[in-house]
Simulated assay, not measured.
Amino acid sequence: MDTASHVLFGVTLAGLATAIDPAIAAEPGAFGGAWIASLVVASHAPDFDIVARIKGQAAYVRLHRGVSHSIPAWFLWPLPIALIYAAASGFAEAALHAYAWALAAVVLHVLLDALNGYGVQCLRPFTKRWVHLDALTLFDPYLFVLHLGAAALWLAGAADPVPLFPALYSATAFYVGWRVWRQRRRLRRLREALGGTASCYVTPCMHPWRWSFAAEREDAFVSGFIRCGRIEDVVEIPKGAPLADHPLVEASKRTEAVRSFLAFAQRAHVFITEDESGTVVAWRDMRFRFGRRLPFGADVAFDRQRAVVSEQIGWRKKAWEGPYV
């Protein structure tokens, strides 16, 4: 999910802890503003991998949602947060509760990331497989408004946290379960409609009844939208002749941008365009095809002497444009 949503979930998780943890309810002096701040930090902690941007966009793509979201990291992130909180608040006996709830915040962060289409390597070190359930958009407006309203009522003193936050998280669990069920249903029907296509991806749009899809057949890539159960706006891109053995394709694989891209992409396809200045080798992840656009990939430009002129990797879309991953 996006940063604002993770921060907001940290606030409402603090409210849930206040509602259901007797130790927290019994010591309001120990669990005040600093308590909320600690869970906000914990809720965002796995995304501190943003420091990888210092080394460039390719390093960030390679490292984002990787080690920082892995199983060992679940247990490591809460440790300094709990210790700093206990030291700053002066309640050393609160450290264990702070650690447990910070751990819950970190795990919730990873779960929310796994629910969207970009995915997360949350099962490292056992596997580097990207886990993506494709059920939620990067920013889910319905969950955001729901949690924002609950947080505002609680912080303003207008609502008792005891009934409010258990109800909030019950509603959240129901909504997420409903989205996962709908995604699986749409995916199953898409495969049936495309005649058993092996590789199909269905990802959500902002509208709750609209989904985008990308699929791969032996001869072509297929994309489109599913609106209220109907497949619409289908676009096919023939695969054409294989380019894997092209010398510039091989040369592009030695660049940092393409190495980072291939470490992440699950349905990579390469295109070559030439003009008077040279050749561009464009790698795209077909999983993120949205209509006629291929917004995520890596480009390597070569001059006429086949020397690398430039390389870049990332998204080529506005924040409000799909796909919403």
Results as ranks from 00 to 15, higher is better:
residue 144 F to H: 12
residue 145 V to D: 01
residue 145 V to F: 14
residue 145 V to I: 15
residue 145 V to E: 02
residue 145 V to R: 14
residue 146 L to I: 01
residue 146 L to S: 13
residue 146 L to P: 03
residue 147 H to G: 05
residue 148 L to S: 13
residue 149 G to R: 11
residue 151 A to C: 10
residue 152 A to H: 05
residue 153 L to C: 08
residue 153 L to H: 10
residue 154 W to E: 08
residue 154 W to V: 05
residue 154 W to Q: 07
residue 154 W to P: 03
residue 154 W to N: 06
residue 154 W to D: 07
residue 155 L to A: 09
residue 156 A to F: 12
residue 157 G to V: 07
residue 157 G to F: 08
residue 158 A to C: 03
residue 159 A to K: 12
residue 159 A to M: 12
residue 160 D to W: 11
residue 161 P to V: 06
residue 162 V to M: 05
residue 162 V to L: 05
residue 163 P to N: 10
residue 163 P to V: 10
residue 163 P to C: 08
residue 163 P to G: 07
residue 163 P to I: 11
residue 164 L to F: 07
residue 164 L to H: 09
residue 164 L to R: 09
residue 165 F to A: 06
residue 166 P to M: 06
residue 166 P to F: 09
residue 167 A to L: 15
residue 169 Y to P: 04
residue 170 S to A: 15
residue 170 S to K: 05
residue 171 A to E: 03
residue 171 A to K: 06
residue 171 A to N: 04
residue 172 T to F: 06
residue 172 T to L: 11
residue 172 T to S: 14
residue 172 T to P: 01
residue 172 T to E: 08
residue 173 A to K: 05
residue 173 A to L: 15
residue 174 F to W: 15
residue 174 F to E: 00
residue 174 F to M: 13
residue 175 Y to E: 08
residue 175 Y to A: 02
residue 175 Y to G: 03
residue 176 V to P: 02
residue 176 V to D: 03
residue 176 V to N: 02
residue 176 V to E: 02
residue 176 V to A: 07
residue 177 G to I: 09
residue 177 G to L: 08
residue 178 W to Q: 12
residue 178 W to P: 00
residue 180 V to C: 13
residue 180 V to L: 15
residue 181 W to N: 02
residue 182 R to Y: 02
residue 182 R to Q: 15
residue 182 R to C: 01
residue 182 R to W: 10
residue 182 R to I: 09
residue 182 R to L: 14
residue 182 R to F: 01
residue 182 R to T: 10
residue 182 R to G: 00
residue 183 Q to T: 12
residue 183 Q to D: 00
residue 184 R to E: 11
residue 184 R to F: 06
residue 184 R to I: 01
residue 185 R to H: 13
residue 185 R to N: 07
residue 185 R to W: 10
residue 186 R to V: 11
residue 186 R to T: 01
residue 187 L to H: 15
residue 188 R to G: 02
residue 188 R to H: 14
residue 188 R to V: 03
residue 189 R to I: 00
residue 189 R to W: 11
residue 189 R to D: 13
residue 189 R to H: 13
residue 190 L to N: 07
residue 190 L to E: 06
residue 190 L to I: 04
residue 192 E to P: 00
residue 193 A to Y: 10
residue 194 L to C: 03
residue 194 L to P: 03
residue 195 G to C: 03
residue 195 G to A: 04
residue 196 G to W: 09
residue 196 G to A: 05
residue 196 G to N: 05
residue 196 G to C: 02
residue 197 T to M: 13
residue 197 T to W: 02
residue 197 T to Y: 12
residue 197 T to V: 15
residue 197 T to A: 15
residue 199 S to I: 12
residue 201 Y to H: 14
residue 202 V to W: 06
residue 202 V to L: 03
residue 203 T to D: 01
residue 204 P to F: 03
residue 205 C to H: 11
residue 205 C to I: 00
residue 206 M to H: 07
residue 207 H to M: 02
residue 207 H to W: 05
residue 208 P to N: 04
residue 208 P to T: 05
residue 210 R to Y: 01
residue 210 R to F: 02
